[in-house]
Amino acid sequence: MEPKKILNISVDCVVFGFDITNKSLNVLLIKRFLKSEDAKEVLINDYVLTGYHVYENETLDDTATRVLKELTGLTNQYKKQFKAFGDPDRLMNEKDLAWIKNQEFNLRTTTIAYYFLLKTEDVDLKSNTYQPLWFPVSNLPELGFDHEKIILEAYEDLKVKCLSEPIIFKLLPDKFTINEVQDVYESILGIEIDNRNFRRKLIKKKYIIALDEKQVGISKKPAQLYMFSKDIYQKMFKKNYLISI
């Protein structure tokens, strides 16, 4: 028996991933599709964030974790609750009203927004029943509800957070190159970083461990691989410490 839902409280999850090939920060979205009752007209054909109602026996964190697991099969990913969205008009456009009528939930729903950071390769898109797709944050499709606003506010929060905590390593493979780290920072912050200066600073950080390995399967000269040591970082961590890039 499914637990009882709180019909006017939901959680929406902004799932960020980094595309190493295209060097873009992406967000994982699912299709929202609805036809008229006689199936002759497409009423809604757009994308939304993954989310759901909070169950009465859950904390908000529990709901966010459940929603992510149902979409991706993943647990124990980095997550941050960053804002509540409760504007009275947030669900009032024509398409949203049609969807709400079909799904039978409350017009005055407040959603608690989280964002997650994960590795894009950890998400199996092909066999996923929700048929999610990755979209660049800089090139979003048509979105339902107020989800564009939620994504952009999550993105702004991520920009600030990545300068105070080493969370960008949640977006990278366990073994990475210095150029890949720079690509992530440039993609998130929307700036160009001097390569030589960045490399010099990064390799001096004790929590960036040089491995006795290089890239494989590439045609050009393979680059040195590194890993991030969470243990070393936590020993060095100081309150209000800013990560210099």
Rank of each mutant, 00 (worst) to 15 (best):
residue 70 E to L: 11
residue 245 I to T: 04
residue 127 S to A: 06
residue 195 N to C: 04
residue 207 Y to N: 11
residue 182 Q to V: 07
residue 17 G to N: 08
residue 242 L to R: 13
residue 156 E to M: 10
residue 221 K to M: 08
residue 197 N to I: 15
residue 114 Y to I: 10
residue 9 I to K: 13
residue 161 K to Q: 10
residue 90 R to V: 03
residue 110 T to E: 10
residue 77 Q to F: 06
residue 19 D to W: 01
residue 88 P to F: 13
residue 121 E to W: 08
residue 244 S to T: 12
residue 240 N to K: 13
residue 237 F to D: 10
residue 237 F to W: 13
residue 65 T to W: 00
residue 210 A to T: 14
residue 240 N to M: 10
residue 90 R to G: 03
residue 147 H to D: 15
residue 230 K to C: 02
residue 192 E to S: 13
residue 238 K to N: 13
residue 4 K to D: 09
residue 40 K to D: 10
residue 146 D to P: 01
residue 199 R to E: 12
residue 3 P to K: 06
residue 220 K to A: 09
residue 25 L to F: 04
residue 109 T to F: 02
residue 233 Y to W: 15
residue 203 I to Y: 00
residue 25 L to P: 03
residue 67 V to S: 09
residue 100 I to K: 08
residue 159 K to R: 13
residue 124 D to I: 01
residue 140 L to S: 09
residue 237 F to C: 04
residue 188 I to W: 02
residue 97 L to V: 15
residue 53 H to M: 12
residue 26 N to D: 15
residue 110 T to F: 02
residue 19 D to N: 13
residue 42 V to L: 04
residue 98 A to L: 14
residue 33 F to K: 12
residue 61 D to I: 07
residue 124 D to T: 00
residue 159 K to C: 03
residue 177 T to C: 09
residue 203 I to L: 02
residue 71 L to H: 01
residue 218 I to N: 07
residue 224 Q to K: 14
residue 146 D to M: 05
